[in-house]
């Protein structure tokens, strides 16, 4: 039975060896997850600041405000998103997606929000991903933001656009508000076709409800300006209520 005992001990120790490797694997994975979570929190926080910066825009300071926003956004990319890129490079970024997805979504929200105010159009996923390429080690597979996180970020974008639209109307920028209205309406409509086939659409479905609320808030605001403006066309003989309305405060105050 001494051979038997030897075998037992061997089995025992090979099991221990295997499990000590498993232990190392799990420790490394958890440490990496923790680092990713932290980087993601930083991305979130600083992206939110970019969004607030863009909201500071008015017709008098548009350029300087957006310039600062651009710089801040670049700082988020270089200081924080780059950390995510480094951690996740060459590994399977789907595995840790839950750990960084909130940060990436907020980053998408900030980048597309800034871009819309700057250019009036949607910043595409490819464009964002191409800005991340320089952050990667060229020998490894680069981190690319996936469609799902992009769409989730886009859904939040509409909330910010709604806030912007309400503010712009007070600011007299009716045309810009209407532009936002059309843009958000298009996004909403396009998303209705895409959302049902997303990987896990439960989050997105509640976001769609919120988005519809945002769309309607903008539409109601535009309605209200329009109706108010229409009231005096007969009196004043103009045919374009919106130009009339927007012009008013500048002239009379």
């Amino acid at each position: 039975s001494s051979t038997k005992r030897a075998r037992t001990m061997a089995t025992n120790s090979s099991m221990r060896d295997a499990f000590s490797k498993h232990a190392e694997y799990l420790n490394n994975l958890n440490d990496k997850r923790e680092r990713v979570v932290k980087a993601s929190r930083d991305v979130t926080m600083n992206s939110k600041k970019v969004i607030f910066q863009v909201h500071r825009m008015s017709k008098y300071n548009k350029e300087e405000v957006l310039e600062k926003a651009e710089k801040d956004l670049a700082a988020v990319t270089n200081q924080h998103v780059s950390r995510l890129v480094k951690e996740l490079q060459g590994t399977d970024f789907w595995k840790l997606r839950r750990a960084y997805s909130p940060g990436i979504q907020e980053y998408i929200e900030a980048a597309t929000f800034y871009n819309f105010c700057k250019t009036g159009s949607l910043l595409k996923l490819d464009e964002i991903n191409s800005t991340l390429l320089p952050l990667s080690d060229p020998s490894l597979e680069p981190l690319q933001i996936n469609v799902l996180d992009y769409l989730l970020g886009l859904a939040d974008l509409t909330g910010e656009l709604m806030r912007l639209a309400i503010g712009q109307i007070s600011d007299g920028e009716l045309e810009f508000a209407e532009k936002i209205c059309r843009f958000v309406r298009d996004i909403y409509r396009d998303l209705t076709l895409v959302v049902p086939i997303m990987d896990d659409s439960s989050d997105m479905k509640t976001k769609m409800d919120t988005m519809l609320q945002s769309v309607m808030k903008i539409e109601n605001a535009c309605f209200s300006v329009h109706v108010r403006g229409s009231e005096y066309i007969p009196l004043l003989g103009s045919n374009d209520p919106s130009s009339f309305l927007v012009g008013l405060p500048d002239i009379e105050l």
Binding site: R163, I166, G167, I169, S170, A221, S224, R228, E231, Y232, L245, L248, E252
Partner: peptide
């Protein structure tokens, strides 16, 4: 703070009503 935007807009509307 988000709500304040609506206050502002409403006041702006009233100002407009009066002005016009």
């Amino acid at each position: 703070f988000d709500g304040m935007k609506y206050d502002l807009r409403r006041v702006e509307e009233v100002y407009y009503d009066v002005k016009i």
